[in-house]
């Protein structure tokens, strides 16, 4: 129930009947488009142009991961040596690498591995972190102390170093990298989930439910968990971007997929030796990573800031 974007919560400006929840100046065309939508959707931040674009990016990338063959006819593994290091053009959108392989095809075909790793990592982090945080928030007392001190310790080690330490033990490979990145993010989710559970548990409507005679389990299932889930879902989306970055960084450092299997981070790494001669080699696959992370972040912020009907 916050007034987002208003410089000053002015009660006069916000009539109960027609709340002006978001005062951020909208561009005229965007507001006209949104005015055509049904009232419930119109105010949802997911309908902003930026968020829609981000959604489109994420959908395209998921499609690349599922059916890479539909987007490119080039072979990602075997190249045409005669075409080696060809600059971007109509034949090769992203140019070719030193073995004459089409870089766009390698990027598209590498998506599945990178996206899968990111999803595994974020699933591990969200599932384990939410579980730990929920237990800490519900049980409280000594259990809460121990779990949260543990989270503090994990947060004391920079994420990348923590995942590197885990990779050292687990060994190299995409799945190992995904697990390592996921483990490094557990503490963030645990903290958030615990905070949300505590916030909702203290809410007046939870007390009202107890007074209405609702049992403990029913309050947890009907009130606490659904109302805690929103922010956790938002963090999951935001973290997806961070996880894509971390996974590609580890694969750039050489701990991910083994050549010649294409993967986003390792594609950028392969181009390192051709910086002076083939600018596109590292630049274009890297730009894809940046766009995807940016889109995930934008989407996360939209999910995390629900419109007036969602909260």
């Amino acid at each position: 129930m916050t007034l987002i974007g208003t410089a000053r919560p002015d009660r006069t400006a916000v009539r109960p009947a027609a709340p002006v929840r978001d005062a951020a100046p909208a561009t005229t065309r965007a507001s006209r488009v949104r005015r055509a939508l049904p009232a419930r959707l119109r105010h949802h931040p997911l309908t902003r142009p930026g968020a829609l674009l981000a959604l489109a990016v994420v959908v395209v990338v998921l499609a690349w991961a599922l059916v890479p063959g539909a987007f490119t006819s080039h072979d990602p593994i075997t190249g045409v040596p005669a075409d080696a290091l060809a600059p971007p053009g109509a034949a090769h959108w992203f140019g070719t690498d030193h073995l004459g392989r089409d870089l766009f095809a390698r990027t598209v075909h590498g998506t599945a591995l990178s996206v899968r790793a990111a999803l595994v990592a974020v699933a591990v982090a969200a599932a384990a972190g939410s579980a730990v945080g929920a237990v800490a928030g519900f049980v409280g007392g000594r259990v809460d102390d121990v779990l949260m001190r543990g989270a503090d310790v994990l947060l004391a080690i920079p994420n990348l170093l923590l995942s590197l330490a885990v990779v050292t033990v687990l060994g190299f490979g995409t799945l190992e990298v995904a697990l390592a990145v996921g483990i490094a993010s557990v503490a963030t989710f645990a903290r958030l989930m615990r905070g949300e559970v505590l916030r909702v548990r203290r809410a007046t409507y939870v007390e009202a439910a107890h007074l209405a005679g609702a049992g403990r389990a029913s309050v947890v299932v009907r009130h606490v968990l659904p109302n805690s889930a929103g922010p956790v879902l938002a963090l999951t989306t935001v973290e997806l971007g961070g996880v894509v970055l971390a996974v590609s960084a580890l694969s750039f450092l050489g701990y991910g997929a083994t050549p010649p299997t294409p993967e986003w981070g390792s594609l950028v790494a392969e181009g390192r030796n051709y910086l002076a001669t083939a600018w596109w080699y590292s630049t274009l696959p890297g730009a894809v990573i940046a766009v995807v992370v940016l889109a995930a972040g934008r989407l996360g912020r939209a999910v995390g800031r629900p419109g007036r009907t969602a909260r």
Partner: peptide, 26 residues
């Protein structure tokens, strides 16, 4: 009990009918 602030005393995800029904169901 009837709380002071009606904006926090109702679960934001519950419809009016569901909120009033809650004690009956419980």
């Amino acid at each position: 009990l009837v709380h002071q602030d009606p904006s926090t005393a109702l679960d934001p995800r519950f419809t009016v009918a569901r909120a009033v029904d809650e004690p009956l169901r419980a």
